[in-house]
């Protein structure tokens, strides 16, 4: 391979990609600069750099939406969902691959085919199931549901590998 050579062509490509990447990142940059502006300033111009950067927005949000609590909730749900999904999916995928046969293949395709079920169709009935098991409005209930929703994706990925 002659990839080690770095000529004018590569420099041009690199510059082009840097421009393209900057465009890609621009909306994220906008969020950052607008988060330290005051409201009138944001309304005046979206792209101008902040005149006098202020952290007022952050402190307001921190209190208003009870940020620590919300973040803790997200963190708990994410960590326990990931752990549960990893354990159960890899266990299932391992057995499915190690004992090939009609049953394993059926389970695999059965689970995999549910990838095409649109979430909106199962939303309300899933809520009913959760209610039957008294899982509504609890954190662990949410975690259980995530387990159910994400197993298939991960399980099918691992099995496919």
């Amino acid at each position: 391979m002659r990839t080690s050579r770095y000529g004018a062509g590569k420099l041009a490509l690199e510059l082009l990609l840097v421009i393209f990447a900057s465009l890609t990142l621009y909306p994220i940059f906008l969020i950052l600069i607008n988060s330290v502006k005051t409201y009138p300033e944001v309304m005046k111009s979206l792209v101008s750099m902040p005149n006098e950067p202020t952290l007022e927005n952050f402190s307001k949000v921190w209190v208003l939406m009870n940020y620590p609590r919300a973040f803790l909730n997200s963190l708990l749900v994410t960590v326990s969902s990931v752990i549960g999904v990893l354990l159960a999916s890899s266990a299932a995928a391992y057995r499915l691959v190690r004992s090939p046969g009609k049953i394993s293949r059926f389970i695999f395709y059965f689970v995999l085919s549910s990838l095409v079920i649109p979430f909106q169709i199962i939303m309300v009935p899933a809520l009913k199931v959760a209610k039957d098991f008294h899982l509504v409005n609890t954190l662990h209930g949410l975690v259980f549901m995530y387990w159910g929703f994400w197993f298939l994706a991960l399980c099918s990925c691992i099995t496919a590998l």
Partner: peptide
């Protein structure tokens, strides 16, 4: 023991709701 946990939650939160729909 290996496949069960995944399958139960899958049936409960995806397959059963889908059938109900």
């Amino acid at each position: 023991a290996f496949v069960g946990p995944m399958l139960i939650l899958f049936l409960l939160f995806i397959f059963l709701p889908f059938i109900r729909s």
